[in-house]
Each structure stands twice: as C-alpha cells, then as structure tokens.
Amino acid sequence: MTLATTADDAMPVPKARAWTRERVAGTMLLGLWAAVFAALAAYLVAAWNPELFSRWAPAYLSGLGTTMLLVVISTLLGAILSVPVAWGRMAKNPVARFLAYCWVYFFRGTPLLAQTFLIYYGAGSFSGWLQEHGLWFFFREAWNCAILAFTLNTSAYQAEILRGAIQSVPKGQWEGAASLGLHTVQTLRKVIMPQALIVALRPYGNEVVLMIKSSAVVALITVPDLMGQTRLAFSRSFDFQTYIWAALIYLAVVEALRHGVDWIERRITRHLKR
C-alpha cells in the first residue's frame, strides 16, 4: 500500500448527497409547507386591521387566562380526586374495584362535550331541588359546571396514569420496604412514589396538553375562554384571521408545554443515564 492511498483513506472527500426520489419528494413537500406559511403570513399582513387588533387583543389575553385557570384548577382538583379512584382500581375489595372501573370507563368512554352539557344543561332539570338545597348558585354558573365536568373527566384519566405508574414499580421494592419495617403510607411516600412519578411525568404532561386542547369546548357553554373570545370576535367581524390568531396562540402554548415537559424529564432522569 502506497503512502498516497492511505492519505486518501484517512481523508475521504465528502460525497455529494444524491437527488434520490425521497429527497425530491421531501424537498417538494417542504416547499409546499413553506408556501403555506408564506401565504399565511402574507394573508395576516394583508388583513392586518389595527382597529380589530386593539379591540380584541385584550379579550384574547383574558381568554387565554381563563383557559389556563380552568386547566390548572381542574387538573389539580382532578389529581386529588384521582387518588381514591386509583386506589379503588388496585384494591382487593371487589366492590371498590368495580365502582372505580365504572367511574373510569364512564368518563373515558363518553365525550367530554356530552358530559359538560349533561352537567350544565342537565342541572336545569333539577333546578327546584337544587334551589331547595342551596346548590343552585353553583350550577347556575357555566364556569362552575365547566370546572366540575373537567375535574371529573380528568380524574378518570389521571387515576389510570397513577395506577400505571405505581404498578410499573417492581414488587421487590414493596417487599424491601416491608422488610425494613416501613408501613404502607411510608412505603408509598418514600419508596414507590419517587420512582413512579418519573414514569408518570410524560403521561401527566400529555394529559395537561389534552386538557388545554379539550378546554376549547367550554366555549360552547358560554364560558369566555380563548376559544369563546375567538368565536365572539369572528361572529362580530366575520374576519377569518380571528381563528388564525387563536390557532397560533394555542400552538405556541402547547408546544411550550411539550418542550417544558421534555426538559423536566431530561433533568430528573439524569441519574439513570450513562
């Protein structure tokens, strides 16, 4: 082997990437996306209307605040409610297991919109009874009904996440804790939960994203969330850009949350990486 060929082997000339069929198709599709985004930007510039903006920008902001508040409150309340449901799903008692199973099946097997309607409009059927017992003030407000429906709905999903995460921890961890003389609550708090929550983080993140997305349906029961303000703005102005702006805001929020969850997951699993 001569010296020249070894030098050639050591420093290969980078080959130009061939224009395969895939590359042509991919470039064309990317071009299509670029055209769509350019058209969207051009449309938004052409349709720019300072009057519309100054009228609805504060409404959109307060709508976004309403959406966030709804999601935060019902996710937290749902997290609390999910604990007994998850316990019921794992209980030895068949009655508790059956009831928890029905709870989860009902709220995951029917549309959230139907549940919301059932609570908000359905409460009207019992207005007399509710007034008698002083509960009418609660069900009269669309906001309260939305919170109730979303809390019940997410409690079923979160119970399944919690159950899956706890069951993902090997049985030996329970046995080890028992052999050290820890009782059940101590075991859960000090041994099981720290491991289960790492598993549960990603599903919880997905659940919050799903909640933000499905919270748009409360606009249909007159709650002025981001979607509600958008519908109002569209019905007043008949300007389609109102929906485009809402879409951009929702996308930004969801993507920020998704990347946030990714970041947290990377941080809390550092000790597992090699």
Binding site: V217, A219, M227, Y243, A246, A247, R258
Partner: peptide, 15 residues
C-alpha cells in the same frame, strides 16, 4: 396534534 380539535374543525369549516 397541537391545535384543539374544535378549533381545527372551525378552521376547516369557516376557512
């Protein structure tokens, strides 16, 4: 995947 389903529906219907 990031857009609310209801918004996608309105975007397509009214769009």
């Amino acid at each position: 995947r990031g857009l609310p389903e209801l918004l996608t529906l309105f975007l397509i219907y009214f769009g």
